[in-house]
Amino acid sequence: MTDEELWGQVRAGVSEAFGMLFERHAQAVFAYCLRRTGTWAVAEDLVSVVFMETWRKRTSVTVGESLLPWLYTVALGVTRNHQRARTRYRAALGKVAPQHADDDHADDVARRVDAEARTRAVIAELEKLPAGDREVLEMSAWSGLSQAQIAQVLGIPVGTVKSRLARAQRTVRGALVEEAL
């Protein structure tokens, strides 16, 4: 069953169809949230927030082939809000020791810590970019959306997507971008 067909059921209030869409896209949304936040537990929580918001707006959202562009739209807003809150509490959080592998499930914890370390290194690099350029580059590299879809998600013209992407590529020219794009 396609996303469009499932969404039709979701709009009629069929929660099971929404569960199927969750199973289908949760991993993609999670990957985006983790790459944006760099924290596994936060990304998991944000996935739930993204889908809650998506459910809440089900009657006002029209879905084409895929629900993913809309999910990325919501995920962008949710992660932005998270970043704002994190900025506000950064001073307080700075006094707290970073969390490391002090859990009992060693393999799983190691896997998560590795993923977090990788994503945080990327985040640190991308934070050198202006916010607008950064969001275009991230969306282009991580979402698999076309430039037209990215324009729709970000609410900007396609021409702006192209120019921001080109500028971001110039700024982080070299291994960082050419490997990814």
């Binding site: 790459r35 993923a115 690099e125 490997e179």
Partner: peptide
Amino acid sequence: MNITPDIPQL
């Protein structure tokens, strides 16, 4: 550096 680090499956 790879801008798209692997993300483990949930």
